[in-house]
Structures are given as structure tokens and as C-alpha cells.
Amino acid sequence: MNPTRPRPRAARVLLVVFAVLAAVHLVALLVRTATGSGGAHAVADAAVLATKPALMPVLAGYALTRGGPPLLAGALLFGCCGDTLLQIGGDLLFLLGMAAFAAGHVCYLVVFARRGTAPARSRTAAAAAVYVLAWGTLVALLWPGLPADLRGPVAGYSLLLTGMAFGSLRIGPLAAVGGLLFLLSDTLIATGIADWPQAPAPQFWVMLTYIAAQSALALGLLRTAGNPAPAAPATARPVQV
């Protein structure tokens, strides 16, 4: 049996499960923030810990049952590894979690190259300039507040993340929004590490933008499932007479 053959009924069930998990996770984050201690806080904390690692595997299962490319599922499962490692905490696990997300971005870039369509050269150059400028500006602003041992890894990771967001333009508007939301989510994490002022319930906003990002990337790619990027036309050979 082809593992990527679409299975609509299973896909619908998994999509509902993902939506419920996401809603429970986000609500639990708000409850945990609003209740400093007590039974409600403990229940909310348990719900957060249980639902976060489950989100991306369910979304990966949904993508596969929709006939999505295995590398899309791989990107989402690497996201699950990153989610779990960051949830445990600690400097080493933070770096390992960043590496897991980086591997997921590489998976996305490969899928974008295989299934995307390159925009016009002038638009590509302009978009690339904007993304590079945004990356350089952000790193420059964050640099003084980052711990010295994280400056290099954060700069390198953010460059790869920016490349992934730029690459998502090849897929279409929905995936491009997903790439931008991923940039926003990880920027919120970085500003917290750099001790910038945070919005109320900062983890809620991190996860809201992250869940929306992964969902938009997955759905954008699923729209291209089975439609790899067209190959360049072969160069015509002269006819010999």
C-alpha cells in the first residue's frame, strides 16, 4: 500500500484532533498564566506539558493521510523533537532543540525546491533583499542582550530560518504566511532570551504563532501534493542533415 495515498476519512479525524489539541494547549497556557498557583494552575500546567509534544505528530499524520510528501512529515516531526527538548529546558537541550528545528527547516527547503515555482527574477531579488535586511537588523538588535555562548548559534539558526521563510515564497501565499509566522514565533523566543520587554502571556503568543506557522506551511504544501516543480525545458538540439 502506498503510504502517501490520500485517506480522506482518517485525514478529517486527525485534523479535528489537531484542532482540539491546539485549542486545549492555548487555553491551558492562558489559564496557567492567569493562575499563579493552586489546582487550576496544576491542571493547566499538566495540559500544556501533555499537548505540546502531541501537536506536530498529529499534524504530520494528517499531512501523510492527505498524500503529502514524507519530508513534510519529517519537518513536522523534527518540530516535535524541538518542542519536547525546549519544554524540558536547560542550555544543552535548548541548543539540541534549536538543531532539531534547523533540521526541520532543511526538510522544508528541500520540499520547496522540489514542489515550488520560482517567482520572477526581479521579484526574487527584491524579496531576498528584504529578508536578508530583516535578518541582519534583528540579529544586530538582539546581539547585545543574548548570552555570549548563544550569539553564534542564534545568528546561524536565524539565518537558516530566514532562508526557509524566503523559500516558502515558492509555494504560494499560504505557505509564505507560514514562513513569516515562524519567523515571528522564533523572534518572540529570542526577545525573551535577550530580556526584551514581553507582552502578557508571552508563551501563548509564541505557541499561537508557531502552531499557525506549521499549519500554514503544511496546508500550503498539501495544495501542491503530487505536483512537483516543473523541470526546465530541454535545450533544443540542432538537427543533423
Rank of each mutant, 00 (worst) to 15 (best):
Arg9Met: 12
Val16Lys: 09
Val20Trp: 10
Val24Trp: 05
Val27Phe: 13
Leu29His: 14
Ala42Val: 08
Pro53Trp: 11
Ala54Leu: 15
Leu55Cys: 01
Val58Gly: 06
Tyr62Asp: 06
Thr65His: 11
Gly67Phe: 00
Leu76Gly: 03
Phe78Glu: 00
Gly79Arg: 06
Asp83Ile: 04
Ile88Pro: 02
Gly89Cys: 06
Gly90Ser: 07
Leu92Ile: 09
Leu96Thr: 02
Ala102Pro: 04
Val106Leu: 15
Val106Glu: 08
Val110Lys: 14
Val110Thr: 12
Phe112His: 03
Phe112Leu: 01
Pro119Ala: 13
Ser122Pro: 00
Ala125Gln: 13
Ala125Ser: 13
Ala127Tyr: 09
Ala128Gly: 10
Ala128Met: 07
Ala140Asn: 10
Trp143Val: 02
Pro144Glu: 11
Gly145Ile: 05
Asp149Ser: 12
Leu150Asn: 03
Met164Ile: 03
Ser168Lys: 03
Leu169Ser: 10
Leu169Trp: 13
Ile171Ala: 11
Pro173Ala: 14
Leu174Ser: 02
Val177Tyr: 06
Leu188Arg: 09
Ile189Thr: 03
Gly192Asp: 12
Trp196Phe: 15
Gln198Leu: 15
Pro202Thr: 08
Gln203Pro: 01
Phe204Cys: 08
Trp205Thr: 06
Ala213Asp: 01
Ala213Pro: 00
Ala213Gln: 00
Leu217Cys: 07
Ala218Gly: 00
Gly220Leu: 05
Leu221Trp: 06
Ala225Thr: 10
Ala229Phe: 07
Ala229Cys: 03
Ala232Cys: 07
Thr235Phe: 15
Ala236Thr: 13
Val239Gly: 14
